[in-house]
Amino acid sequence: MTTRLLINGRARDVDVEPHRTLLEVLRDTLGIFDAKEGCNEGVCGACTVLLDGRPVSSCLVLAVATRGKPITTVRGLERDGDLHPLQDAFLRHGAVQCGFCTPGMLLTAYAFVEAHPHPDRAAIREALEGNLCRCTGYTKIVDAVEDYARNRCG
């Protein structure tokens, strides 16, 4: 069945079987590898995308159910080809190691700061609980999100 997906502001008409997850369609049908598959059971957060601005595990969402709703992957954060300030904060703070969790982590953090512009470290940690990272130990990720939130509000 042809379904119109709105990915990073672009409409894509895709022939989708009704049982396919959004993650499968992004990766296997469209060749968009921005979301990673870490567990395929909604635990690790590596496949996080924003659906209507809210972070979801794309391995748990059926692609047809997203019809017409805006989907944002990490590339959708970029502005005119420049890194988003949150991406830049991750770089400056060394919050990236293997990088497999990074796209999901960025999207969860972005949506959180949009909704909570003045978070403290404990609140940032609560918000990122659903995104596993095995490399960094999280300290630098929290540093980066804290710094981004602070600068965002000037």
Partner: peptide, 23 residues
């Protein structure tokens, strides 16, 4: 120096082709 790694720059943009991002 606290050099920003080239691979990190790729990774924040999901530009790294991991083994599974290959077909």
């Amino acid at each position: 120096q606290r050099v920003v790694r080239h691979d990190a720059r790729d990774k924040v943009q999901a530009a790294t082709a991991y083994a599974g991002d290959w077909a």
